[in-house]
Amino acid sequence: MREDTHDWRALAMAAKVKSQQEHVSRPTRKLATRNRAAARKRPTGRRDRNKQAIRNRIVKAALSLFQTKGFDGTTTKAIARKAGIAEGTVFNYFRTKEDIALYFFEQEVAHAVAAVRDNPRLRRAPLEEKLFSLVQNQLEYLAPYERFIGAALLHALKPTSALGPFSHRAMELRHRYLAFVEDLIDESIPKQKQNPLAFLAPEVFWIYYLGTLLYWLYDSSEGKQNTLAFLDRSLTIGVTLLRKGRR
């Protein structure tokens, strides 16, 4: 096990050197011209962007393989080949394929949170609409990778999995997500008007979210119309329960 880790590190180091060489040798011309001024001010900007571009390429390749070959059936080697980079480069960015998946989920949450946060139309919307929009944006982001999401959910059940609820990074992601949900609740319903058990709401919401994900995965209705109806109705009930003095 320890030796394994050493191997990983050595590989990763080697890959890092190689990938840096690659970065230098392959700058995209268009990008370079467009951002020349900015690059002059921030010398690291272009490198960061290049790194981000490669990271995105790896994730895109990995997702496409997860979707077609399945999560377990996909190797890092295949990911590297699909992304058109050396296998070592992949390790430079992600230690394991679980990390790639986790990175994807982080992006997904960031996207959905931003979509709700930055939408001026939602600023004065009721809580149920904000929560609807949050989950809806998540599902829309996940939709192209439906098969993979199902596999990832199963994979997350393994106690040692990086995707599982006990991995540090997954926990962090969940906290970030639920903190946002809590913010949404607090800005819509003042604390004194919340049901005494409302402090549990974010945790309950997490379970609800996982349930919705399962419902969505198995929703065979045309255009997944049932999931929309389910989301709408259940959130209306849920938000009613959150308020004090209501049924």
Partner: peptide, 15 residues
């Protein structure tokens, strides 16, 4: 049918 909030209407129209 139950009333739809603007976000749901938007999703329905977009889809």
């Amino acid at each position: 049918a139950p009333g739809m909030h603007p976000s749901l209407v938007r999703v329905q129209i977009k889809r």
